[in-house]
Design a protein around this nucleic acid. Structure first.
Length: 583
RNA sequence: GGCCCCGUAGCUCAACUGGAUAGAGCGCGAGACUUCUAAUCUUGAGGUUGCAGGUUCAAGUCCUGCCGGGGUCACCA
C-alpha cells in the first residue's frame, strides 16, 4: 500500500460519504478521480482532480464540489490542510506523521519496497540476434532494454519468461557454415586469400575453422551438402555460446531458447499454417506492387502463398513462401509465436530493432488470427545507438568486419555504465553513447551521479559507526523504530516525498513498458539527496551527523537508509549494482 | 506515394498516458568555495511546445490537415 493510494482511497470515501448524505448524486462514477503530486511543491503534498471530473456529471460547478470535498476531507486526521485552487483542484497537505511513517515502511520492506503482485504471466522475447557472429553495440540496447523491462515487470507482479528465438535455419546460417569451412581450409594450410564477398570476414570464425579441422579431418572430401551440414552443427553452438557469454557479461540471461530449426523439424511451421488455413486466412494470389513513385526495378507480378493480414489491420497481405517455394521468415515467426501461445502465454512482448518496424503489424495480425484474439503481442522498438568518443562518432565498418562488439564496450566501461546509459533515452529514440561521458567522474555522468549517491549514504553510515554508533544502532530494524520527529526541514521532506513516489513510478513505467523512467527517477532521487547534502555545507543543522544530537542523528540516518534502499531497489530494477564505495 | 517514429530553452533531453505558472543538465551572466567522502555549490536570464484548426472544465500530451527531419515499404534477415 503506498501513500498515494491511501489518500486516493480517503478521497473516494469522502465522496461516497457526500453521496450518502445526498450532497452529491448517487449515480456518479468515481473512475477518473485521481490523486497525484502537484507539479509545484508550493501547492501542497498532493492534489486531486475530483471536483473537476465530477462537476459536469453532478450538474454542479467545480468549485462547489471542491468545497464539499474539502469540508469532508478535513474530518480526517491524515489531512492537515485542504484548499481549493485553480480551476477546481483540491490541494492537500498531509499530516507530517504520514510522511514520516513511510520511512519505517521502507526500512522494513527493504528493496522489496514497491513490489506488486498478481499481474499475470507474460512472455518477453528480446535480443534474438542471429547466431552468425558476436553481438555488437546495437544488440546491447535491445538486450538492456528487454532485460530491464523484464525486471520491471517482475517487480510489478508479472510472472515473466525471458525468451530468445534463435534464427538457426535461414540462409544466413548457410553463409555462416561456408565461412567456417573456409576457415577450416585455412587452418589446414590452404592459402584462402581475402574472404570473398558474401561470406563473413570476422576473425571470430577462425576458432570454428580450427574446431572443424580438428574433429572432422575428412570433411573436405565429403559432398558439399554434408560439409555445410557438419559446419552448421559445429558453428551454431559455438556462436550461441559466445552470445550467451557476451550477454552474461552484460548481466543478461534468458530463461528459454527456442530454435527456429526445431520448429521446422517438428512440423510446427506446417501445423501453425494449417491452423490459419482452416480459418480461410491463407490463399494463393498476386500482390500489388508497393504503391509509390518508385516500384522496385525488378518487380514482377508473381503468384505467392499469402496470409490475409490485411483482415487484421495490416496494409497488405503478406507472403509466406518465396518464389522458389521455400518459407519466408514470416512463416516460422508465426510458428514461434504460436508456440508461445500453446505454452500458455497470452501476453507477449517482443523487442525489435528499429529496422523491423514495418514488420509489426503483420506479426500482430498473425498472433491475433492464430489465437482467435485470445493472445496479444506488443512490439517495443529500440532505435539506433551511435558511439561517440572525443566528440566524434566512432567509425564502424561492417564490411571489413571491424565493428565494435558489445564485449569491447563492456570491457572498457563496465556493465553498469552500459546498462544505465542505454536507459537514458526513450527506447524508440536514437541514442548517443559517449565514452567520455560514461567514464567521467562528475555529475555530468548520470551513472556516476546515481551510484555516488548510494555510496555517499553508505559512507555516512560508516562515519556514524566511527562516531560512536554501534552496529545494532544502525540496523534498519533499529532505525525503523526511532522517533522521526527531528526531521522537519522542507528539504528533508522533499526527499521523503520523492521516496513516496517510487511505487507509483514503477507502476506507470511498467504499464507504459518504459524502463527508462526508472533511470530518470533515480537521477532525480540522487539529485534530491545530493541537494540535501549540499545544504549541510551552509546550514550546520542539516548535517546528517552532529555532535550531541543522538536522537536527531538516528532520525536522519533512518531517512538516509530509506533513500539508499530505494536507490538500491531502483538500480536493481535496471540491473545496475549499487556500489557501497566509489573507487 | 503508403505506413511508423520524431519536432519542446542556444545544445542534449524530461514532463509520472489530459492537469495548475511546460521542467532538468550542459552552455551563457553574476556570486560563493580547504569540503560529515572528495570527484563543487548558489543564483539569474533564456519558451507562442514546427504551423493551423478541432475535442475538453483543462492539450506538449488526444483527433484532422499542412510544414520539416528520420526510418521502412513483394520475394530480404
Amino acid at each position: 500500500m503506498n501513500l498515494f493510494s491511501e489518500i486516493e482511497a480517503l478521497v473516494r470515501d469522502s465522496l461516497k460519504a457526500l453521496q450518502a448524505r445526498g450532497a452529491l448524486p448517487e449515480q456518479l462514477s468515481l473512475d477518473r478521480v485521481g490523486v497525484e503530486p502537484p507539479r509545484d511543491a508550493s501547492h501542497g503534498d498532493m492534489a486531486t482532480n475530483a471536483a473537476m471530473v465530477l462537476a459536469k456529471p453532478a450538474g454542479l460547478n467545480p468549485r462547489d464540489v471542491a468545497a464539499l470535498l474539502v469540508e469532508e476531507l478535513l474530518k480526517s486526521d491524515a489531512i492537515e490542510t485542504a484548499e481549493i485552487a485553480g480551476p477546481g483542484f483540491v490541494n492537500l497537505r498531509l499530516a507530517p506523521a504520514l510522511w514520516l511513517g513511510l520511512l519505517p515502511t521502507i526500512l522494513e520492506q527493504g528493496t522489496g519496497f514497491g513490489d506488486q503482485t498478481g499481474a499475470g504471466k507474460l512472455n518477453i522475447e528480446y535480443v534474438s540476434a542471429n547466431p552468425t557472429g558476436p553481438m555488437h553495440v546495437g544488440h546491447a540496447r535491445g538486450a538492456v532494454f528487454g532485460d530491464a523491462l523484464a525486471r520491471l515487470l517482475e517487480k510489478t507482479g508479472h510472472e515473466v519468461l525471458r525468451e530468445y528465438y534463435i534464427n538457426d535455419a535461414g540462409s544466413q546460417v548457410d553463409v555462416l557454415a561456408r565461412s567456417a569451412l573456409l576457415r577450416m581450409r585455412e587452418t589446414l594450410g590452404e592459402d584462402i586469400g581475402s574472404i570473398p564477398e558474401g561470406l563473413y570476414p570476422g576473425d571470430y570464425l577462425i576458432p570454428v575453422g580450427q574446431e572443424l579441422a580438428k574433429n572432422h579431418p575428412d570433411l573436405g572430401s565429403q559432398d558439399e551438402a554434408t560439409q555445410v551440414q557438419v559446419a552448421k552443427s559445429v558453428a551454431l553452438p559455438m556462436m550461441m555460446e559466445r552470445i550467451r557469454e557476451d550477454l552474461a557479461a552484460l548481466g543478461v540471461a534468458h530463461d528459454f531458447f527456442l530454435s527456429e530449426q526445431s520448429l521446422h523439424a517438428d512440423g510446427s511451421v506446417d501445423k501453425s499454417l494449417d491452423v490459419l488455413d482452416t480459418k480461410g486466412l491463407i490463399y494463393k494470389g498476386v500482390l500489388e506492387p508497393p504503391k509509390g513513385k518508385t516500384p522496385p526495378p525488378d518487380w514482377e507480378p508473381q503468384e505467392q502463398t499469402l496470409f490475409r493480414s490485411s483482415d487484421f489491420g495490416d496494409d497488405s497481405d503478406r507472403a509466406l513462401k518465396k518464389s522458389d517455394g521455400s518459407w519466408t521468415y514470416f512463416a516460422p515467426d508465426i510458428a514461434c509465436h504460436f508456440n508461445k501461445v500453446t505454452r500458455g502465454y497470452t501476453q507477449m512482448i517482443d523487442v525489435w530493432g528499429a529496422d523491423h518496424i514495418g514488420y509489426i503489424k503483420r506479426m500482430q495480425s498473425a498472433v491475433t488470427a492464430i489465437s482467435e484474439g485470445e493472445a496479444s503481442l506488443e512490439v517495443k522498438v529500440c532505435n539506433l545507438v551511435k558511439l561517440m568518443r572525443g566528440g566524434e562518432p566512432v567509425k564502424m565498418s561492417k564490411r571489413s568486419g571491424s565493428f565494435i562488439t558489445l564485449r569491447e564496450v563492456v570491457d572498457e566501461v563496465g556493465k553498469d555504465a552500459v546498462r544505465f546509459m542505454m536507459l537514458t533515452r526513450k527506447n524508440d529514440a536514437p541514442l548517443d553513447f559517449d565514452f567520455d561521458v560514461v567514464k567521467d567522474k562528475s555529475r555530468d555522468n548520470p551513472v556516476f551521479y546515481v551510484q555516488y549517491a548510494h555510496a555517499r549514504i553508505c559512507s555516512v553510515l560508516r562515519n556514524a559507526r566511527q562516531a560512536g554508533f554501534s552496529e545494532a544502532d544502525v540496523t534498519d530494524a533499529n532505525l525503523a523504530s526511532q522517533n522521526l520527529d527531528p526531521l522537519k526541514d522542507p528539504a528533508e521532506f522533499a526527499l521523503i516525498r520523492n521516496l513516496a513516489n517510487y511505487p507509483r513510478m514503477l507502476a506507470s513505467a511498467a504499464e507504459a513498458r518504459e524502463p527508462h523512467r526508472v533511470a530518470f527517477y533515480l537521477m532525480e532521487l540522487a539529485a534530491d539527496f545530493h541537494a540535501l547534502w549540499n545544504l549541510g555545507k551552509e546550514r550546520l543543522e542539516l548535517r546528517f551527523l552532529q555532535d550531541d544530537d543522538r536522537a536527531g542523528n538516528l532520525a536522519r540516518l533512518a531517512l538516509l537508509r530509506a533513500a539508499a534502499t530505494v536507490l538500491a531497489s531502483g538500480l536493481d530494477v535496471i540491473g545496475v549494482t549499487p556500489e557501497d564505495e566509489m573507487r
